[in-house]
Nucleic acid binder design. Sequence first.
DNA 1: TTCAGAAAAATTTTCAATATTTTTATAGAC
DNA 2: GTCTATAAAAATATTGAAAATTTTTCTGAA
Lengths: 215, 215
Amino acid sequence: MFGRQKEESATVVNLLANQVRRDISFGVLPPDTKLKIADLRGRYGGSAHSLREALRLLSNEGLVEASAQRGFRVSSATQDDQQDIIRLRREIETTGLRWAMERGDLQWEGRIMASHHALKAITAQLQQDPTEFALDWDEANRQFHICLIEASRSPRLMEIQNSLFEQSRRFRLAALREDVLDFDHTLSLVDKLVAAILAKQQEEAVSLLQQLIIH
Amino acid sequence: MFGRQKEESATVVNLLANQVRRDISFGVLPPDTKLKIADLRGRYGGSAHSLREALRLLSNEGLVEASAQRGFRVSSATQDDQQDIIRLRREIETTGLRWAMERGDLQWEGRIMASHHALKAITAQLQQDPTEFALDWDEANRQFHICLIEASRSPRLMEIQNSLFEQSRRFRLAALREDVLDFDHTLSLVDKLVAAILAKQQEEAVSLLQQLIIH
DNA sequence: TTCAGAAAAATTTTCAATATTTTTATAGAC
DNA sequence: GTCTATAAAAATATTGAAAATTTTTCTGAA
């Protein structure tokens, strides 16, 4: 449920990467934590090599930083990092949305409506129990954003989006814990965004998407 | 000389990655080639694990594709791939240039002039001997493009740019071999681009950069 | 305090072996 | 002849242990 979208079979390396990714996202492994292989083995199991490879994988996603001969650390999560991620997500996702709106078909519009629907439903659940549904909520979030640019037919753009989304997760979940999210406002933006997409109003949609990406 | 920009000390894994990256870029390892660890050990040396890790590294850069339980392959290089890379590079680099022009200082302008100068010099050499200087020429190319967005202060944007540049290398070197590059036209575009940057004409610079990215 | 060198810790790398999975080859059924 | 199921072979994934490097920490002297 926390995995990547592709049909990646559950290799040991992928399982380990998923666990570490989740713990980094939730702050169990705080930013800048030194990731010593020996310690990690005690926590997650797996061989030294498998863990090493899992960390190498996460370093590609940007959640972990690798420096030669100095091992791995959890990536920093300063305000600068957050700003960098947000402005990049705005660029990447609006570009993707533009391309998708030029190429998208009815099927695409259908998938957007579906993921929109799911997002609304899970958000309602989240407001009842913020801790229980945090993961599902953010996964619905991810699915919705993936959907938006799905029709762009740019595999590399989608990979970049995914990487940035994973990196932003830490900040979003932190904001959720601190209860500073305005769900009503966000949902109203999402409603308008979907409407604009269906009405093929590109610039309106782009503007709304930019307002939506704030965490 | 073919390495990444950061001060990555020469670990075995990095050395192996550099060699494989070079061979992929030059087409010694053609697109879609199955990369069997055993074969690679014969060619490049190193232990199985080091090679595996090097391939995992390259898969992050997009030059190699990893599929679970099925090993590694050289990434495909179809016309669709090339188009995807080109249009993404245009988006990424123009965004970076915009940000850089908003934040850039005199030092940045100086570095641009320096890398521009180097690029002109090496292009002249290249026209004398296209095979001997291919690598140095593309490295100067890379340095110039890195320079353009250096002042954007977006580490993630620069990483994305680097990854896309590495991916585009195969196509550029192929075009060079096929002798379909118009150096005079390219250099004139570069001249105008640098002039526009120094004159702080953002939209003009962006337009020129887009015209420059065609391989 | 600062510096140099020794000691300790951690990372990187290699070798070797086992378990899984995928691919290939073969034989039989329709 | 094509296809399916099974067996064999090849390749990948995983683990363990140990040697070689490098970085970090510690200690004592100037």
